[in-house]
Amino acid sequence: MKYALVTGGSRGIGRAIAVKLAKELEYPILINYQSNDDAANETKKLIEDEGGQCELLKFNVADLKETHQVLDSWIKHNPDATVEVIVNNAGITRDGLFMWMKPEDWHDVLNISLNGFYNVTNHLIQKMLTNRYGRIVNVVSVSGVKGTAGQVNYSAAKGALVAATKALAQEVAKRKITVNAVAPGFIKTDMTAEMDEKELKRMIPINRFGEAEEVADLVAFLASKKASYITGEVVNINGGIYS
């Protein structure tokens, strides 16, 4: 059986992606999450109510040992299964001016977005290479493409992931594995709930925040066979704010 894994998949953009991959591409879904059991179970129920299959994998992507333990345990119990799609969506923000940024706020943001990508993808890519097929989609951000004041840590993490996307794409293309990134702008989620939408939407040519569902549509396309000739790309989805 072929699976899709979504990290940070219990809510927000991750949830929308997980539901979309189950519904449109009919993948059984593995949802990684770190702590919010209620949100993870809610996402699982959304997928199952639509007739899909879903399993929850609780681990911190920034912790290499824990990531390997949980993934290896799942692989052991599902010897015939293959993770064919990886969506690296897990990420956190710890915003603040760089001059006052605490070391933990720098390291935590980089560890989850960047090291999380390494810990999960590096561990699962061997089987993709053997099977000569795979889809890796990294959720980055407008901050990682243009840089955002007050988000030096987040911009650094996502910018590094943009570069990693382009490099890895070149390494694995011959094995029919594509590696792409999507860079959302302002999307309505818990992460942006406290932002002044009325004020900020003036900066956005389309004059509104995006929906998580719209990001999920793009990810589902890149994860499909229709996107076989697209790799190493960073697709901006931001209402025209920056491209």
Rank of each mutant, 00 (worst) to 15 (best):
A90Y: 00
A149C: 06
M195L: 15
D217G: 05
T82M: 10
V219F: 04
R135D: 06
H107K: 13
P184Q: 00
N122M: 13
L5E: 04
Q34R: 14
K65S: 13
W106V: 11
D190E: 14
K44A: 13
A149H: 07
V179P: 08
Q69E: 15
N119C: 08
L129S: 09
R11K: 15
L129G: 01
N122G: 14
R11N: 03
N207P: 06
A22Y: 04
S224E: 13
A81I: 04
I29A: 06
I75F: 12
R135V: 05
K176Q: 15
N131H: 12
T148S: 14
E213G: 01
F209V: 08
R135L: 05
I125T: 11
G9W: 03
N41I: 00
A173D: 01
A193P: 03
M101R: 07
I31M: 02
A220E: 11
K174W: 06
E84Q: 15
Y242C: 09
Q170I: 06
E194K: 14
G14W: 03
K188N: 10
D49T: 13
A163I: 04
V234I: 14
L114A: 09
Q53V: 13
E55M: 12
M101H: 07
D63V: 07
K127V: 00
D95S: 07
C54P: 10
D105G: 09
D80S: 14
V145W: 00
T189F: 04
G91A: 14
W74Q: 09
